[in-house]
Design a protein around this nucleic acid. Sequence first.
DNA 1: CGCACCTATTCAACTAATTGACTATGGGGG
DNA 2: CCCCCATAGTCAATTAGTTGAATAGGTGCG
Lengths: 187, 187
Amino acid sequence: MSLKYAVLAALLEGEASGYELSKVFDVSFANFWASTPQQLYRELERLTRDGLVEARVVRQERRPDKRMFTLTAAGREDLRGFAAAPPRRPTTVRDELLIKIQAMDDADPGATCALVEERMAWARGKLARYARVRERLLDGRPEERYLREADRIGPYLTLMAGIAFEEENLRWCERVLAVLRQRVPQG
Amino acid sequence: MSLKYAVLAALLEGEASGYELSKVFDVSFANFWASTPQQLYRELERLTRDGLVEARVVRQERRPDKRMFTLTAAGREDLRGFAAAPPRRPTTVRDELLIKIQAMDDADPGATCALVEERMAWARGKLARYARVRERLLDGRPEERYLREADRIGPYLTLMAGIAFEEENLRWCERVLAVLRQRVPQG
DNA sequence: CGCACCTATTCAACTAATTGACTATGGGGG
DNA sequence: CCCCCATAGTCAATTAGTTGAATAGGTGCG
């Protein structure tokens, strides 16, 4: 249902191809609306059919043709309504690692440590990518000035949510490792 | 796929009915594996068929009969293997509010504020429930002692993740409100 | 006395999401 | 030269998840 609005919101940043959107949904949007390229292509098809986005084919010299999508007035209006309405469904999270932690007392502590360390490496990678997106948004301005003056601050605020989330994630991992090491000093 | 292991992990705490599990998945498990009662009943059916859990019917006087489920040795073994293996799929989050924030620059700032405040109220409610679960787990002991001595600390660590997540959520909301108020002082 | 809500579950129909393969073209490395 | 990777998608099959209602006895409130 809301993948629709996630795509429309992504197109607020300007025209994009399905492929480009799939990159966006792999980095910044991944924090709050996970989806695969296949899902995006299907959704773009539907949105085009419903007149909320418009497609134009761009022929390229040394690459396959691509379709570039733009928000229509109807799409923008629909999104505006969505943005002001209360959420229909509660936030859902699906994190396999936490299931493994929930069940860890029955498993090998060494393996659990390794999983947590993997998660930390992953979180650090995400933070590095977010830092680059942040630099690009701020474009040299101090944050305070950006937040006062920029046309659009929504993307910055969601990015901040992602950064805060991953930093918290890292702190939690650190804590889990400390506890594990104290309980199994030989591990 | 992993709902299976989420259910098995929940049953590590002991025998439970589908209804009881749906309560657990509404509170503590909600942080890391969202699912509805219908999904749980279907999954329990499958797990029973596959011999990973065992069911027994409990006839009750003043309530409908219920089926109580227990982990079998095979179920416990399967879960142990899962707990030590690296995650198959990345963590997915689906948070409608963040889409609305992403698109907020096109929408009514007052409505956006209201949505953020709603989220804060929700987060505070969750934190209150987590605090009660925590009290029950600690059972009067100081945390340090609990973490050293308790049989199972997995559930406590996942609870800590949920608490940290909601606290971070609250801090982020506070920040969003501060920014919104600065940009639209009349709102 | 009636209504709403809690326990405890099941069913059917539908929509959304995942997996894996397939089509093309071009570039870079070994 | 061959393989892999990146671009830019499409298709088909299956699995997972959502929605809404039905069943059925009990409790609490006014």
